[in-house]
Amino acid sequence: MIKIDKLCKSYGEKKALDNLCLDIKANSIFGLLGPNGAGKTTLISILNGLTTFDSGQIQIFDKPLSKYIKDIRQRCSLIPQSLAFYDNLSVKENLDFFAGIQKIATATAKKNIGYAIEINRLDSMLKQKAATLSGGQKRRLNIAIGLLNNPDILFFDEPTVGIDPESRNEILDTIRSFKQDNKCVIYTSHYMPEIEKICDQVAIINAGQIIKQGDICSMLEREMGNQLIIELYETPIAVLQECCELFSLLTVINSSCLQLASKKPEYISQALSLLENNNVKIKQVNYANTNLESIFINLTSKGR
């Protein structure tokens, strides 16, 4: 659905995107992760035609973005992080305005407004001024406006900032439901548990480049599959460091914990023997419990 090839964008001397390549498939919820200044916002702005790019190719719906920007925009929607609507208009007036300014047939607009209201559970507050809505309700209105053109691709830029956990879960459920409606969601957030919860594909972007991309489950499995945690009784760090020097797959985590970067039986046996020979008392051995956050931190902290 979205194909990006060798995309480059610079602001003066600073490279915001550096030969970035990305492939986002239809009917998926795609998480875009990256530290501040990594290039996420620039990428989203380019994909929405708000910023130009220096070189590279972007194809959306198999059409080059530069040439078919207006057509592509009609099938996409950006839900910005800020609450981009009018506080002094009611919920219904906001929806009518944003539907009215887009070239949508009246009957279709009516249907789309109905869908946006229903899926965001806004029916009971249609006459309420947007300014008087709660934080979660405002976020839902922000999303509802993005649905008025019945888009095939939805870009979410941190849509749950500053709201309570209950409202956040409601919004995440709504976003998850878009997959059932055959929509593609590109989701950027700093909340890793959110990404883990709703996304099926993820790309980690750092310094304008994609440094990891793939299916979340297999990415987690791969990271977990290669690691064991050996819990110990309190041992002097110097002793543990000596063991690690003798066996390179071992890493000291702290004075009562070591990490073994393999789960092959022969390596486990070697590691345990070495520890026993050095009078290190073992409590238990567990699979490492990793998550997206630790992968993200591990990857993005490299090279700093």
């Binding site: 929405n48 035609g49 708000l50 207006k70 925009r73 009609q74 996409c76 929607s77 950006l78 910005p80 800020s82 609450l83 981009a84 609507f85 009018y86 506080d87 944003f98 300014i101 887009q102 070239k103 406006i145 053109n149």
Partner: peptide
């Protein structure tokens, strides 16, 4: 307010051009 809240940016993504925006 429209500029600060990114409403104008949202309108741009809805194919509203600057002349149309000004005319509005």
């Amino acid at each position: 307010s429209e500029r600060k809240q990114n409403t104008l940016m949202r309108l741009s993504t809805m194919n509203i051009t600057i002349p149309a925006l000004f005319a509005g």
